[in-house]
């Protein structure tokens, strides 16, 4: 599977990762090498009749909608991890002009 620099830029954009020119050319080579090892999957027929993820493996977990007060105890320790605070709120750059 060949992959060109535009592909790399497109994926980086989807993943919201900035890349330098050097990153782009490195990734192009590295990803092409890795994708080569995925070629073996071409031999696999996907059976679309049967679900691929078995439903008995995972079941939804629900709980009572109760306030157990753990969040309010964590307020200050959670906020102290924020990059920037203002009056007890997390500060971000403006979304709209």
């Amino acid at each position: 599977m060949s992959i060109n620099q535009d592909d790399i830029m497109h994926i980086a954009n989807l993943a919201r990762i900035g890349l330098s020119k050097e990153d782009v050319s490195n990734l192009q080579v590295e990803m092409a090498n890795i994708l080569e090892h995925f070629e073996v999957l071409k031999n696999i027929e996907v059976n679309k009749k049967e679900p691929l993820i078995q439903s008995d493996e995972i079941q939804s977990v629900t709980r009572e909608d109760l306030n157990n007060n753990t969040l309010s105890n964590m307020n200050s320790s959670m906020l102290s991890n924020a990059p920037e605070l203002q009056e007890g709120f997390i500060k971000i750059q403006s979304v709209f002009e």
């Binding site: 994926i11 989807l14 993943a15 919201r16 990762i17 900035g18 990803m31």
Partner: peptide, 18 residues
């Protein structure tokens, strides 16, 4: 994300996104 993640993490995010 460019400067916070190292090369291997970025490589895997890129692979997975692809």
């Amino acid at each position: 994300r460019q400067n916070g993640f190292g090369p291997e993490v970025k490589r895997r995010i890129m692979l997975g996104t692809y």
